[in-house]
């Protein structure tokens, strides 16, 4: 069942078209990513979804119903620009945000205790936010968005500014909430995270939908004859570049991602490399990553 439907949505700020006829759907219980470069309109889309700003035209449906104020209680939101009240205690912060989501004070307190315990910050429960380290504050911030066990979770650039440890914690939280049946939507421009998590994505650029679908679908659609090669001598890539069937080379020092024409067999490619006398440490046929697809599409858009 579709949990969220966004249909032909438009939003302009003055002369700038932030969102241009955007449409996509999110299935219940799935993790969905909105990808796109900075300024693509991700945050505007998310804010419209939460009714923080109204769309100029188009339709946004949650459970097939237009937005009502009451729905905010079932949504958890972590904005890109985040912060907490510095002078408020951890306990009071969590209870405040919980109560704002319609929880009763004792419910909020109980849930706050459980979550703080889970992330190992129990000792800090009665401390002021300003006394916590940045990493701890980030953890508390996550909890504020899910303390009320929402069935829709919306994270705007959740991984920006997180250290690896907190990134892991957030990934765990997201997967745990998915297990509980929550539908999760998040935006990011860091595609590695998206790839690990998402069931479906929408790629937007300049407010326009560039690509939409499940991860599998997209991979199939953009499947390519793609190889990952590691060479011994750095200059040998010049030789590879001369092969007539090479479509594209992305170099990472001694490592390359190479796309070749579809009809060329891997054995032929490998044979050619060996015949050229290039020493290789690794030769691997790979699936296109989300990043490959993304970069490809972005480049096409530029043209």
């Amino acid at each position: 069942m579709e949990k969220i439907i966004i249909k032909d949505v438009n939003k302009s700020y003055g002369d700038i078209k932030a969102v241009n006829n955007l449409s996509f759907k999110i299935e219940e219980g799935k993790i969905y990513g909105i990808l796109g470069p900075n300024g693509a309109g991700k945050t505007t889309t998310i804010r419209m979804l939460l009714n923080i700003i109204p769309p100029d035209s188009g339709e946004i449906l949650i459970d097939n119903k237009p937005f009502e104020e009451k729905m905010k209680e079932r949504i958890g939101y972590l904005p890109e620009e985040r912060g907490l009240y510095r002078k408020l205690k951890v306990k009071d912060t969590l209870c405040f945000f919980g109560e704002l989501k319609g929880m009763k004070p004792n419910e909020a307190l109980k849930s706050a205790e459980e979550w703080v315990d889970k992330i190992g910050l129990s000792e800090w429960f009665d401390k002021k936010i300003e006394e916590l380290s940045k990493g701890m504050q980030q953890k508390i911030q996550f909890i504020t968005s899910i303390i009320h066990n929402p069935d829709i979770i919306i994270f705007d650039e959740p991984f920006s500014g997180l250290d690896p440890l907190n990134t892991e914690i957030l990934l765990d939280i997201m997967l745990e909430m998915k297990k509980k049946g929550s539908t999760i939507l998040f935006s990011t421009h860091i595609l590695e995270h998206a790839e690990k998590l998402v069931d479906g994505v929408t790629l937007i650029k300049n407010g326009k939908n560039v690509l939409t679908g499940s991860l599998e679908e997209i991979r199939n659609r953009y499947s390519a004859n793609l190889y990952k090669i590691e060479i011994e001598e750095e200059n040998d890539d010049e030789k590879i570049k001369k092969f007539p069937y090479i479509k594209e080379i992305n170099s990472f020092g001694k490592e390359f991602e190479i796309e070749i024409k579809k009809e060329i067999e891997p054995t032929k490619f490998l044979k050619d490399i060996v015949e050229e006398g290039i020493k290789i440490n690794k030769f691997e046929r790979i699936q296109p990553s989300l990043k490959n697809i993304y970069l490809k599409l972005m480049k096409e858009e530029e043209k």
């Binding site: 939460l50 923080i52 904005p79 704002l100």
Partner: peptide
């Protein structure tokens, strides 16, 4: 400045 407003607006 503390960027709390947006979280608040997602609740009320």
């Amino acid at each position: 400045n503390m960027r709390v407003t947006e979280v608040l607006l997602s609740s009320v």
